[in-house]
Nucleic acid binder design. Structure first.
Length: 90
DNA sequence: GTTCTAACA
DNA sequence: TGTTAGTA
């Protein structure tokens, strides 16, 4: 799925999707032609990112949080990670 | 026609 | 964030 379609389905601009990647919040696969390939996991990630940004969290924190969250389809659930609690506290 | 990077407003 | 330039 190309960035153009991704942008429309997520309701965000292509510029923003590239910006998120720049901040380390997204890791789309790079095609041989240089294009970004987005999958379903990225759709969920964008939802998480937007929610957290709206909550006022800095992108630096969000990048680490994305590694601790899993989307089972319609809700986000914390992934077992020993250091999560202390990290959130910090 | 679409996407890419970098950079400016 | 939008947009533009020059490419691939």
């Amino acid at each position: 799925m190309k960035i153009g379609d991704r942008a429309q389905r997520n309701g965000v601009s292509r510029r923003l999707l590239r910006y998120y990647e720049e901040q380390g919040l997204l890791r789309p696969v790079r095609l041989p032609n240089g294009y970004r390939e987005y999958g379903e996991p990225d759709v969920a990630a964008v939802r998480h990112i937007r929610a957290m940004l709206a909550a006022g969290l800095p992108t630096a924190v969000i990048a680490r949080l994305l590694d601790c969250v899993h989307d089972d389809g319609d809700r986000i659930v914390p992934t077992a990670w020993p250091g999560m609690v202390s990290n959130l506290r910090r």
